[in-house]
Design a protein around this nucleic acid. Structure first.
Lengths: 149, 149
DNA sequence: CATACTAACGCAACTCAGTTGCAATAGTCA
DNA sequence: TGACTATTGCAACTGAGTTGCGTTAGTATG
């Protein structure tokens, strides 16, 4: 089994369908969080390498598959504040994102020590029990700041 | 002029319409970020205090007004990760939100010193120019953690 | 390999927040 | 008291995501 997501799903009793293999493959190779539309587009071209020509996957299937993978804790929902659900692999180290407002390039960054201390302070001060946080940075990447003429 | 938003708008040449006065009033009195739907609901009852009975404001008007106020930097868009745009007054001190996942109660909190240092570090390390960040904390408030029987 | 069980799929119709085009209305200023 | 036009309301639309339901295709078993 080439892919960690697929392997885990199989262990948990899920069937190995073509749509599932395609979606898991795309998620595993993505360099940034993906939306359903990112998966709907490239899917058939990706699977063309197998002996399957022009596999079409319905958007309902993609949405259901993403929701199932999230419920199985294999992917995490990421929010860039634009009303589109994006997902990334759950097995990586906890991190945040630096998003270029010019070209939408995304870079992973680590922040945690200061946030952990802040959360403990907030819990003392507010009597909330903090479960999670959402933190994204928005700015301009080097290419967008200094475009080559 | 009772209201700071309305006063600023008047200075900038906007007309003082009934819908505008109602929307500005609601935003000014809100204790938490508001969505368009929060404004569409209470509007007519709020304005009933004037000699206007049952003023109806169309949702298009509310969305347009909110977008205008944001473009005029009088309100800020706040993102709770649920695909709904919320807004709060822009004149308050920069802060973040602690959102109860049980009852959706929202509490403002301050965080900034550690984040400012983190942003400087990230700018050095990544060559991004950071313009802004989005940070929200999600958890359970005291009432939802310890409900009275 | 045959077949039966049912997870998974595809389609169409729907929801819901938000947007757009355009004609009607109402602030504001002279 | 107009006239000018910003603002509004309506209806139709968009786009991401969801739901119901009949069909398809993995998988286990014989």
């Amino acid at each position: 089994m080439q892919n960690k997501i697929l392997q885990t799903l199989k262990e948990r009793g899920y069937r190995m369908t073509k749509a599932r293999q395609g979606i898991a493959g795309i998620l595993s190779e993505a360099g940034a969080p993906l939306a359903a539309a990112d998966i709907l587009g490239p899917l058939d071209s990706r699977l063309r390498g197998d002996d399957i020509k022009k596999l079409r996957v319905n958007k309902t299937t993609v949405y259901r598959e993403l929701e199932m993978l999230r419920a199985e804790n294999l992917i995490l929902e990421v929010d860039f504040g634009d009303a589109i659900k994006r997902y990334e692999l759950a097995d990586s180290k906890h991190h945040h994102h630096l998003i270029c407002v010019g070209c939408t390039r995304v870079q992973d960054v680590e922040v945690d020590a200061p946030l952990a201390a802040t959360e403990r302070r907030l819990e003392r001060q507010t009597s909330f029990k903090i479960e999670r946080h959402a933190l994204e940075f928005f700015g301009l990447c080097a290419q967008c700041r200094f475009p080559r003429r």
